[in-house]
């Protein structure tokens, strides 16, 4: 965590200057030395709203506005592809850190089962709080390439002890055909393949997920059943500022 914060700080001298300069306008508040050591702490709670889709260990970023982990209508990065197809976070974290926009991040290690929830704590410097946005991504593991979460929601105005609740929807990374067939999905419904670099969906673009069809609803080659269907919202994310 410390190395992440250090690299983020080194990468953001301009934003630091801006924040410090603006802080000087009103002439209020403590000295900048003191501000440098103050922190803002957030707790992020992820709730799995689905009936039969375990969520892969999510990745959570607090970042400035220059990070977008995905955009509707644009091709997924390889990092997003690895998360959406295989629940892997490492490449996505690498990409995000490279953007120099990350203020803090956490890549969880535990999956979140249907009906379950997990909390994650992240800390940023008080000086960076005014530009802070939050993104959270997690795979619906009994799918070919569905992921859910929230993208770049502003948390800059959240007061201490204040919280905001966001209903997240499911997206399709557009990187793998939604065959639902045996051997193609890493979750317990199939225990099949995760990431595969081939891009064979109907279009190489991130879009909304249309849900799984399943063998119970006429897709005879699907190993999924009605129990794996979902509707939006797919996840609920509660962000609380602790400090």
């Amino acid at each position: 965590m410390n190395t992440v914060k250090i690299s983020a700080w080194l990468g953001r001298p301009l934003m630091l200057l801006l924040v410090l300069a603006l802080a000087g306008c009103g002439g209020s508040g403590g000295s900048s030395n003191r501000n440098n050591t103050q922190t803002a702490e957030y707790q992020v709670r992820l709730i799995n709203l689905t009936a039969g889709q375990p969520l892969s260990p999510p990745v959570v970023f607090i970042h400035t506005s220059s990070l977008r982990t995905f955009t509707i209508g644009e091709a997924a990065t390889v990092g997003l592809e690895q998360l959406a197809e295989g629940g892997e976070t490492q490449q996505l974290v690498t990409e995000a850190l490279f953007s120099q926009a990350v203020l803090a991040h956490t890549a969880a290690t535990a999956a979140v089962p249907p009906g379950g929830s997990q909390t994650y704590n992240l800390t940023i410097s008080e000086n960076s709080r005014s530009s802070a946005e939050l993104s959270l991504l997690t795979m619906l593991v009994n799918t070919n390439d569905a992921f859910a979460g929230v993208s770049a929601t502003s948390i800059s105005s959240l007061a201490v002890n204040g919280s905001v609740t966001i209903n997240g929807i499911a997206y399709d990374s557009g990187t793998e055909a939604n065959t639902e067939s045996a051997g193609t999905m890493p979750g317990p419904a199939d225990s099949g393949e995760g990431f595969n670099s081939a891009r064979d969906d109907i279009a190489d673009e991130v879009r909304m997920h249309s849900g799984v069809v399943t063998s119970d609803d006429g897709l005879s080659t699907s190993v999924l059943t009605q129990a794996h269907r979902w509707d939006n919202p797919t996840v609920r994310i509660v962000i609380t500022r602790l400090k």
């Binding site: 509707i72 929807i169 499911a170 909304m208 997920h209 249309s210 609803d217 006429g218 509707d231 939006n232």
Partner: peptide
Amino acid sequence: STVHRWLNPVAR
């Protein structure tokens, strides 16, 4: 069923 289904929301 594999191309034309949707879940809300459909537009932003």
